Amino acid sequence: MTDYDVSTDIEVLVEDTDLPRRLKDEVYSTLEDRDATLEEVEDIVQGVEAEYLDTRVDPLDPVGTVSAQSIGEPGTQMTMNTFHYAGVAEIDVTQGLPRLIELVDARKEPDTPMMTVHLEDEFAENRERAHEVVWNIEATKILQLGDVSTNVADMQVRVSLNEDTLLERWPTVDDPIEIAEEIADTIESKLGVETRRQELIIAFGPEEPSYRDLLQLVEDLSDIVFKGIEDISRVVIRKEETDEGEEFVLYTEGSDFGTVLGIEGVDASRTSCNNIHEIYRNLGVEAAREAIIEETMNTLEEQGLDDVNIRHLMLVADIMTNEGTIESIGRHGISGSKDSVLARAAFEVTVNHLLDAAIHGEVDALDGVTENVIVGKPIKLGTGDVNLRMSARSSESAD
């Protein structure tokens, strides 16, 4: 048997199949690199086509009901606990059933927002450069920079800055005095007070002697963010093996996805966030759809429930993002906006839905699964959508 030249006629074989374009291109590029005979190429192409056709959904298959069962049944096996984030013992992230509910409810803010920040070039390889990114992300407050004390006799707040900490958190500045001046300027602009600085000591007080105002200044001072992002309280840096090789990866408590993407050294193409609304605002609805699929799959896999078909999760994500925004699956979202009165009433707040429908004179066409089950009619899916008729013929016509 002579060798078959794949590069000449393989395209014809692939194009004759019912595969989608992306799969055709993948099959073609894979076979092009192989030294295969004509019979082998035909067998492979036919095998791929058969597998593809076998995985397609049959007409009138109730995909919504099957998906609900596929996700709902394993959901009963999920724990109600909050686990540590996989591989990062220092950061707690909501997992299990609470996380799944967060996702399908499309909560505006997750209980434990966090980000996985990947770095690029020398920032990913050099720990010192990676820490530069850390200090640009992590919120730096006054208690991390030095000691704060009050002098009631002089009605003064005194801040003693730590030189080593200043140089660590401002690695691109060599002079701690310059950093202290910047901190003093920030205090003046944020608190509206006049500061006096001596080396690394900053002092200020209320305009009028008042113990209450003095304590209020201390409280307000502790809330000022001198560097970093206000919503990110902590950053953990870890060296990990990724698709790009061994590199430093940052994990954050809190999230501000849009701001982080603009920081020097951050690889925006790989950085992710567990807040689907932030992804939607910054990257659009398609990215939000991908995030919903990935977050739900990761949540199930973390619980050992990785046998859920990803296409069922894709269907949920498609429904949630179908209108170009993120809608929850609940009475304030998809389930509450169904055309069918009975389907809405079957989900939650039954009496309210029935009363509203009666007041507005709504009519239920009984097109969906839920409403037909309620009234005891066969659903219009699968065999329920097929009508068999027998034509009555006279004996003469039968002859």
Rank of each mutant, 00 (worst) to 15 (best):
M1Q: 04
T8E: 01
V12I: 04
V12D: 06
L13G: 01
D16N: 15
L19K: 01
L23A: 13
E26F: 02
Y28D: 08
E32L: 13
D43L: 15
V48E: 12
V48G: 11
E49R: 06
A50D: 12
L53T: 11
D61W: 06
P62D: 09
S67F: 10
S67V: 13
S67L: 07
A68H: 10
S70T: 03
S70K: 05
I71Y: 02
P74K: 04
T76W: 00
Q77E: 13
F83M: 10
A86D: 12
I91W: 05
Q95K: 15
Q95V: 10
L97W: 06
P98I: 15
I101E: 00
V104I: 15
D105M: 12
R107F: 05
K108C: 01
D111A: 11
M114G: 00
V117A: 09
E122T: 15
F123E: 02
A139L: 05
A139D: 05
I142N: 06
L145Q: 09
L145N: 08
V148C: 08
T150R: 04
L161H: 05
D164H: 04
E168Y: 04
W170G: 01
P171L: 07
V173M: 00
D175R: 07
D175I: 07
E178S: 14
E182N: 08
A184L: 01
E188M: 05
K190Y: 10
E199K: 14
A203H: 06
F204T: 06
Y211V: 03
D213N: 14
Q216I: 02
V218N: 12
D223K: 15
F226H: 07
I229Y: 00
I232C: 04
E240S: 10
E244P: 02
G245Y: 01
V249P: 08
V249A: 08
E253V: 13
G254H: 05
I263F: 14
G265A: 11
A268G: 00
R270T: 02
T271D: 10
C273D: 14
I279L: 13
I279Y: 13
E286V: 10
E290Y: 11
E290M: 12
A291V: 00
E295Y: 04
M297C: 04
E301A: 15
G304V: 11
N309C: 13
I319D: 07
I329Y: 14
K338H: 03
T350F: 03
L355Q: 05
D356F: 09
A358W: 03
T370R: 00
R389T: 08
M390D: 14
M390P: 08
M390E: 15
S391C: 00
